[in-house]
């Protein structure tokens, strides 16, 4: 198993939206490498013809009828907002799709 590089850790941090400090990048590179080295054992079963289990219960088709339930009041919905304006969540400028 190839080691996890600092660059890979930086890439993961971007995907996970974590502004990791330099020391953390090094620290995690070592630790993730250790942990992944240990858990990679699961791939021993990769070749086996075994169906995956994503869920412990064999349930299917759990649905609810299309009936309106009361929503929160806008005040309650916004009660935890770090910032709000015009009954909306106020967030910093979005660098996005435009």
């Amino acid at each position: 198993m190839p080691g996890i590089t600092r660059e890979e850790v930086a890439h993961l941090a971007r995907l996970a939206r974590l502004e990791l400090q330099d020391e953390e990048l090094d620290h995690f590179a070592t630790q993730l490498d250790d942990i992944i080295g240990a858990v990679a054992r699961v791939s021993e079963v990769a070749e086996q013809d075994v169906p995956p289990t994503s869920h412990p219960l064999p349930l299917t088709n759990v649905m609810r009828p299309d009936v309106v339930r009361p929503s929160l009041t806008p005040q309650a919905a916004l009660s935890g907002a770090p910032a709000q304006e015009q009954q909306r969540f106020k967030v910093p400028q979005i660098l996005g799709e435009d």
Partner: peptide, 26 residues
Amino acid sequence: TKTKMFCGCSTELGADANSQTCPTCL
């Protein structure tokens, strides 16, 4: 549909901002 895909909030158009939200869709 009358309600959202994963919660019972109304989908009616033209409502006040954030008045059709609940813990699930927030």
